[in-house]
Design a protein around this nucleic acid. Structure first.
Lengths: 128, 128
DNA sequence: TTGCTCCTCACGTCACGTGAGGTGGC
DNA sequence: TTGCTCCTCACGTCACGTGAGGTGGC
């Protein structure tokens, strides 16, 4: 067993390292995204759990839903094969379409807000 | 009483016209964003209610929270005055900052997704 | 009588936040 | 004994979606 595999973490350590709350880690466990072992009642996170958490948070940055992240994690369990890569690629491309729509949305909102601000500013400048 | 003031709407008409569900209109009422009168138990929406709904949906396009929308609607009840305009302007500017952060977020996610797709595509092209 | 629209609960969704109350080892 | 970190419920948040079961007028 290499050193790397022997390293374990508490829930506090991991949440501090990745900037999330312990509650979030427990929630990921409830959704079966993580399954740390126990020492008594306390959770013990292995090197592999830590790697999975990194992937989970990456998925969140990509704005995937936890359920989608769970499916992707499942795919990468035994060893990568082409069909698994293709499934992941499909999910990513779908998400890309969704994100581009979202960007358009936000851009529209910004445009609308800027002109709304203009209207009010103009009104404030007109004498009473 | 002008024609315009005499026009009323059912919940079904309004939700169809604005592309939202009846449930949403009832929810806005529960939050006191709308307060239609009643004919028996049925809701009757006046011209003014309709105008408020338009403002609500505009706020949603601007990605404001319903509670914030409620505050803005309150400001415009009796007649506009400078302080009210200034409060609205402040809210809008805050929201603009939030939206710009969100756009950056989405852009980052898109960039990350595109390169994640690249990695997988490259792997798929390499022979087994 | 059948359809349609409307009504009021009230639970479900999503990703946690936030106490409450308790345990265990330094 | 005091602090600290951990634990398990379990309710709250936000903006509705989704039945369930019932009413009223054409």
């Amino acid at each position: 067993m290499s050193d790397r595999e022997a390293v374990t973490h508490t829930i506090g350590e991991l949440s501090r390292e990745f900037g999330c709350t312990p509650r979030a880690l427990r929630y990921y466990e409830a959704l079966e995204l993580l399954s740390p072992s126990r020492r008594g009642k306390h959770r013990v996170y292995s090197y592999r759990d830590r790697a999975r958490l990194r992937l989970i948070l990456r998925g969140k940055r990509l704005r995937l839903r936890l359920e989608e992240i769970r499916q992707i994690l499942e795919l990468y369990e035994p060893g990568r094969t082409r069909p698994q890569d293709e499934v992941t690629l499909d999910k990513y491309r779908e998400q890309l379409v969704a994100l581009e729509a979202q960007r358009q949305d936000v851009d529209d909102a910004i445009t609308e807000l800027v002109s709304a601000c203009d209207v009010i500013e103009r009104r404030l400048r007109t004498p009473t």
